[in-house]
């Protein structure tokens, strides 16, 4: 016996085939102060949201004052990052989340991962159509 599951989503986001990965627009803000806008890759394999430290510095965050965490990579190397609470905006939503800023200056990949992003949403992905569907977990289904 087969069953059919139906999901509905609030937002649809069409991403580009010409870049590596699935980019989404992200905003980071501290309180009512400075904000930055960047592109981040959706990465379901990443434990957390990790951004280049340049964005933290632009926001006036002292990177090393946050919660330290060591991340492993696919090739077995490690790097440190520090967690800070920021206001993260993405498509139709804005919420507070702990995100990490990488210590190495040559860290070059901004990712939204499970904790702080994926755990806030219901996500649908049809890569064949280059389409990402998103709803906040608490939105009407």
């Amino acid at each position: 016996m087969s069953t059919v599951e139906t999901l509905t989503f609030r937002s649809r986001h069409d991403y580009s085939s010409s870049v590596v990965g699935i980019d989404i627009p992200v905003g980071l803000k501290i309180g009512d102060g400075r904000s930055v806008r960047l592109l981040a890759k959706v990465d379901t394999g990443a434990a957390n949201c990790i951004f280049q430290r340049d964005y933290a510095e632009q926001l006036g965050i002292d990177v090393e004052s946050g919660e330290r965490k060591t991340f492993g990579t696919a090739v077995g190397s490690r790097f440190d990052a520090y967690g800070h609470t920021v206001t993260l905006s993405c498509l139709d939503w804005e919420f507070e989340a702990v995100v990490y800023f990488a210590v190495p200056r040559d860290y070059s990949r901004n990712v939204v991962g499970r904790s702080g992003w994926l755990d806030r949403f219901r996500l649908g992905l049809i890569d064949h159509d280059l389409t990402l569907f998103l709803s906040h977990y608490d939105d009407l289904s």
Binding site: T8, R10, S11, R12, H13, L91, D92, F133, L140
Partner: peptide, 8 residues
């Protein structure tokens, strides 16, 4: 980005 839930 389009408005998939406007109707809802």
């Amino acid at each position: 980005m389009t408005d998939a839930l406007l109707v809802s």
